[in-house]
Write a protein that binds this DNA or RNA. Structure first.
Lengths: 335, 335
DNA sequence: ATGAAAGCGCTAACAG
DNA sequence: CTGTTAGCGCTTTCAT
């Protein structure tokens, strides 16, 4: 095999006129060496553009300074900010990230897991769009795992999830602040965890203020089309409402379109809140949407920090909710 | 350091009652061994769930079976399918992918490059949204590099890019097929490479059919808002047009909204083509958009294949265009 | 303060 | 056919 001749510590030692052991110590600040020896070695290393071979280092240290990131469903809109956030703090911790896309296929997931363990990663982050919980990864041979966005069903595992109840409260409180009292809910499929959690939290928060929604929550797809239909239903029922809490930005955008076409002004007649703060949708909407931002990038960072800590031997089992924030735009407050 | 006691080849050899050398040969199919010896070793390996330590293997082979993927702008809508495609074929080639997000920052890019080279990756894929060309990566110490989506400005490098001219032709030919002759172009910023290439190719193709656009191409943002404005301009000028080639799905969707609100039927009165086939936009549009799909996932796969080949010592310098395809929906053909 | 040598886990020559 | 041995590049005792 034609090995690209990179400088080795031998070369550095030779150039500096010391033994490899001394060179190693000089470069790693171990042992006690004369200052000028250290300087000489450093200079030699610079001159040769020496970078220690990570394979050799790993072989000795038993660590790879690498973590695996495995997205159970295909990498998508939700995983990306998570990836970015995690990659960011892991990189700061000198860790590199191996990316695995399981495409919603348990077999692929299993293969990727084997690959990662085979590569002796120091830790694993599991993400995915699927709401709620998922079964924990099969045997990970003592390698620390953190679940991000979705939670492991085992409470012994460490999971970081968006605080969806807190998020729903943010939306309700904001609508109350801008004077709305007759609030409707149009959200995603009834069987969908996020849809249920969000609408339950919304209702609960309303109740705390002595209110209830003008109709039971309307469930449908996570689509603009359903947003249009849902609001169409509300209009058809001649329900009196001055705000709609929507389960996603897409639903909210559909709602905005239908309201406008029906001659209702947003936000003067009806205020709208979205969810996800997905810029493409929220900003293109007429008017732009007030929306809940789950801070997925921050969530990814949080997950990475917990993983780093776990790798250092300090695990944090349990489910850790990550706070959301409200981004206010014209769909609730007149420009 | 507390090393997780994974089985080593020594353990396997001991259990099988052979020497490590023999065990190695048995597991790698080298040399010539008795069938039952091989079987015994295999069984021992299975029993101990033995996986060769990749650090040791790398140390010996001088390869890491790892490639770096570095996205120059932040990971986004365009990079993801590329990532997925590349990860897919690299994984099939036993390669893992180290992900680096440079966030449009040359300094971060440089750091990531150093990290990747420091980790001795076998190859690098560079992607990014920025259109057109980019300066080649600084010294890569002989590590093969493939540029995907954007091209390196050096012709000695290997780049895989979408065939945007071919793509524009697909759109024009389709519009002609459905009987349109008075075609307008509304696209992105004039300084943007894709916008220029796409509209130039559109005009050229029209010319080959003895036609020209009803007005010079209209340039603006890559946004729905500009799509609405652009079509507003066309309507205001009382230009007679029966089709609009839009530079992106967002522009096309904006165009569709304005046309509908102006009482023009899509596609009966005006046909629309989008670009990117971004489902969230193209499907939510009323009507759903006929759009050009650059097959980014396939492009990522192609890039990965070229990289694998380059790693094997068979580089393919030059710019390799990757064909696009047309996805026909209701904005050009009545449902 | 420095050097010599062992060993991390594996593969590939070379002996037998 | 199988075993022994010498590295791959680095860190770390242990001598000196």
């Amino acid at each position: 095999m034609h090995r690209p001749r990179t400088a080795t510590i031998r070369d550095v030692a030779a150039l500096a006129g010391v033994s490899v052991g001394t060179a190693s110590k000089a470069l790693n600040g171990r042992g006690s060496l004369r200052a000028d020896t250290i300087a000489r070695v450093r200079q030699a290393a610079d001159q040769l553009d020496f970078h220690p071979n990570p394979a050799a280092r790993s072989l000795h240290a038993g660590r790879t300074y690498t973590v695996g990131m495995i997205t159970t469903d295909t990498i998508g809109r939700f995983s990306i900010p998570l990836l970015i956030g995690a990659e960011d703090t892991l990189g700061a911790g000198q860790m590199s990230v191996l990316l695995c896309d399981a495409r919603d296929d348990p077999i692929r997931e299993q293969q990727h897991l084997r690959t990662l363990l085979g590569r002796r990663v120091d830790g694993i982050i599991v993400t995915g769009r699927r709401a709620g919980t998922r079964p924990p990864l099969a045997a990970t041979a003592g390698v620390p795992v953190v679940y991000a966005f979705l939670a492991s069903s085992s409470p012994d595992d460490c999971s970081v999830v968006p605080d969806e109840t807190g998020a729903a409260r943010l939306a309700v409180d904001h609508l109350l602040t801008v004077g709305r009292r007759r609030i409707a809910v149009v959200t995603g499929p009834a069987h969908h965890h996020s849809a249920r959690v969000r609408s339950a939290a919304t209702i609960e928060r309303l109740a705390e203020h002595g209110l209830e929604p003008v109709t039971p929550p309307l469930h449908g797809e996570w689509s603009e089309s359903w947003g249009r239909q849902g609001v169409g239903l509300l209009l058809g029922r001649r329900a009196a409402f001055d705000a709609v809490v929507c389960g996603s930005d897409q639903i909210a955008r559909g709602a905005a379109d239908t309201l406008r076409e029906a001659g209702r002004r947003v936000p003067q007649d009806v205020a709208l809140t979205g969810f996800d703060n997905w810029d493409v949708i929220a900003l293109a909407s007429r008017p732009p949407l007030t929306s809940i931002d789950m801070d997925l990038e921050g969530l990814g960072r949080a997950a990475a920090e917990l993983l780093l800590r776990a790798i250092e031997g300090d695990p944090s089992p349990g489910v850790h909710p990550h706070p959301a924030k409200l981004v206010i735009r014209d769909s609730t407050v007149q420009a």
